[in-house]
Design a protein around this nucleic acid. Structure first.
Lengths: 134, 134
DNA sequence: CCACCTATGTAATGATATAACATTGTGCTG
DNA sequence: CAGCACAATGTTATATCATTACATAGGTGG
């Protein structure tokens, strides 16, 4: 869990809380996590999150209105699109990146003249463990 | 713009308002659209939307917290996953479905044992027209 | 008729996110 | 160093999105 020296105090606190969590965390949950560290208002969390998202150190899960620490920082440098498998039973989130999917979406964009800025791929369902459990 | 006879009054009203709109509509915007038709509370809209989503007559855009009428009802019967290209400048939304993307995501799920229930694909950026304009 | 299910209406509340404004820190540059 | 610009911070209030809880009404099948 390497530190990121360019982050400000609030940004580090939020990233730390995200990294400690073993699942997605909402902005208000993060705020609760960090009251003892002096955070008092939602905006402090949202501002830190904005920066972390911009730096690709965290991701927003649109279908949950929640956030996770980035699991694979390297893929973003290659233009990859992060995708997420979200278990609706246990809450676990797996981040992955698939070249075929990224390539095909890129090709579609190119064909249609659409210029992508931010792509969301979220698969909600049951992880193997929960599916087998019933 | 075919009618759907199995829908209740509220469901028809909401679907009609979505179909008339030329872009995504939030639940509260739909409520405002339908005040003259007697709708008074958010829940009336949300309940109608739930049903329309279940019937695949409408889609939720997670990254906008908004809804659109379904543009291609047929794809859903083939197990296809709807995807959306959302222009951040003009607000237009294009729905599409790509077999390669669907197939690859399905294969990934199968490999990992994940059982998908609902998949969100949303590409935000600039449509051809807005990209060329600006 | 009655039990059940679905839809409806209404009020209140919960959850998520941003606007507006004052202040502070930091690095640059004259 | 003084002055300036810029980013980050702190705080209050408010906007926006969504659900809980409870009461009512309308069909459908036993």
């Amino acid at each position: 869990m390497s530190d990121h020296p360019d982050l400000t105090r609030n940004q580090s606190l939020v990233l730390g809380a995200l990294a400690r969590a073993d699942g997605p965390r909402s902005a208000y949950e993060l705020l609760d996590d960090l009251r003892d560290d002096g955070l008092r208002a939602p905006l402090q969390v949202y501002r830190a999150l904005d920066k972390l998202l911009e730096l690709r150190l965290a991701h927003r899960l649109e279908s949950l209105n929640a956030f996770v620490a980035c699991g694979e920082p390297h893929v973003h440098e290659e233009g990859g699109i992060a995708a997420f498998a979200i278990c609706e039973k246990c809450g676990r989130v797996e981040e992955f990146c698939d070249d075929a999917v990224c390539g095909r979406l890129g090709a579609i964009a190119h064909e249609t003249g659409f210029r992508p800025r931010r792509t969301t791929i979220e698969i909600r369902g049951l992880c193997r463990t929960c599916a087998e459990a019933g």
